[in-house]
């Protein structure tokens, strides 16, 4: 019991130190959190204001952030994914071209059944990015207009950027020119 009590202490000391540094993204973070209290701020991001979004709220949050004055995230620069072994994470890099706001949305999905709403209805440029995430990590995007592999070919076994991926291609033999 004493050891378990000691472990939370450094974690508790962390937030105490954090308020000393000013949040560089407070202008974006505060109105977003006021509008969507279900988002968790993700302090690890150093280039943009990061939020962890519940999977069922993604589409609603995306539409709201695109329409919110002062933030107006009208540009989706990238969609990617991370394999954390116990779960997958889909990451959306967003920018407001008029406001200069930069936001990163992260959605945690279970590794067994990775499924999340497609944001192609909000940002049409997400089409190929989501296809790439589906191709390499196996995340399925609901209501995607054309969800099929984009880099690899149809019929490829497995998702190569997963940590448990095993390459099952047959070994090739070296070709030697026949003597003439």
């Amino acid at each position: 019991m004493t050891e378990e009590e000691k472990k939370p202490q450094p974690a508790a000391a962390g937030p105490a130190e954090a308020p000393e540094k000013p949040d560089p993204f407070a202008a974006v973070r505060e109105p977003v959190l006021a509008r969507f209290p279900q988002l968790q701020p993700d302090g690890d991001m150093k280039t943009a204001a990061g939020f962890i979004v519940p999977a069922q709220d993604l589409l609603r949050v995306a539409r709201g952030l695109k329409a919110m004055p002062g933030v107006a995230l009208d540009y989706l620069s990238h969609v990617t994914g991370v394999d954390y072994k116990d779960h997958l994470q889909v990451v959306y890099y967003l920018m407001g071209t008029g406001t200069g706001a930069q936001v990163v949305l992260k959605v945690n999905v279970p590794a067994e059944n990775p499924e999340v709403d497609s944001v192609t209805s909000v940002w049409p440029g997400a089409d190929w990015h989501e296809r790439e995430a589906y191709d390499l990590l196996g995340v399925r995007f609901r209501d995607h207009p054309n969800l099929k592999r984009i880099l690899l070919w149809e019929g490829y076994e497995g998702y190569p950027l997963r940590k448990d991926f095993v390459d099952r291609r047959p070994k090739r033999e070296r070709q030697i020119k026949a003597a003439r």
Binding site: L152, P160, F165, D167, R172, E173, R174, Q175, I176
Partner: peptide, 17 residues
């Protein structure tokens, strides 16, 4: 050479001089 989509050498396809 360990890539999931990379042929490890074109001599696995055709003879190289």
């Amino acid at each position: 050479y360990q890539g999931y989509n990379v042929v490890d050498g074109v001599d696995k396809l055709i003879p190289v001089d």
